[in-house]
Amino acid sequence: MSKAEILGNIRRGLKRGEATQDQKQAVANRINKHARNLVPQRAQLPHEQQVALFIEMATEAAAQIYQLESINDVPKTCASWLQDHQIDTLVTASDEAITSLDWSSATDLACVQRVAEIGDAASLTTSFAGIAETGTLMLHSGATSPTTLNFLPDNHFVILKRSDIVGPYEDVWQKLRETTKGDLPRTVNMITGPSRSADIEQTLQMGAHGPKDLIILLIND
């Protein structure tokens, strides 16, 4: 009932009845083209410079970045960071890239694969892409990558491969459509730095509800 009334009002306002097949087709075509609007120059760069821009922008957004020679350096980097912060448990996602890591060097660290729970101090996930334009990470949900890992723990480690850095957001949509064959995951997160709020007297404080620290492990691949 409501639906018919709402659509009826809109059509009355547009001075037409239900859209014709042609009008609907025109809209469908517009959608299917996935045409880009103006894409700012800023991130339309050679890949090396995109990586540099990503680092610059993510750092500006208060993310910490560690550049690692290989993904095998992840365990010791996490372990030493966590030791400095007196954290002894790391909750991780269960993608291959993480499960295949060798944690034997991190003797004092307990690693568990599961969704996040309240009280978790740190998590480790992979990421789908990095967007140079604003130093933004893209992560998405899936069987091996629960979304709670991105929000509940106090500290969030994210593995990002240099080759997964793209320029503007538009490139990541294309990549996402190609990878997921147009079937979006339930949750797609674009994350730019750690959580914050300025709701108390307009003064910015870090660590509102999400992670207080966002640590990007940038892998040279």
Binding site: M57, A61, E133, T134, V188, T192
Partner: peptide, 15 residues
């Protein structure tokens, strides 16, 4: 801001 910290797309219920 250059970009808000969390931009989150939600599509349907969990898969």
């Amino acid at each position: 801001q250059e970009f808000t910290v969390y931009n989150t797309l939600s599509t349907g219920p969990r898969r």
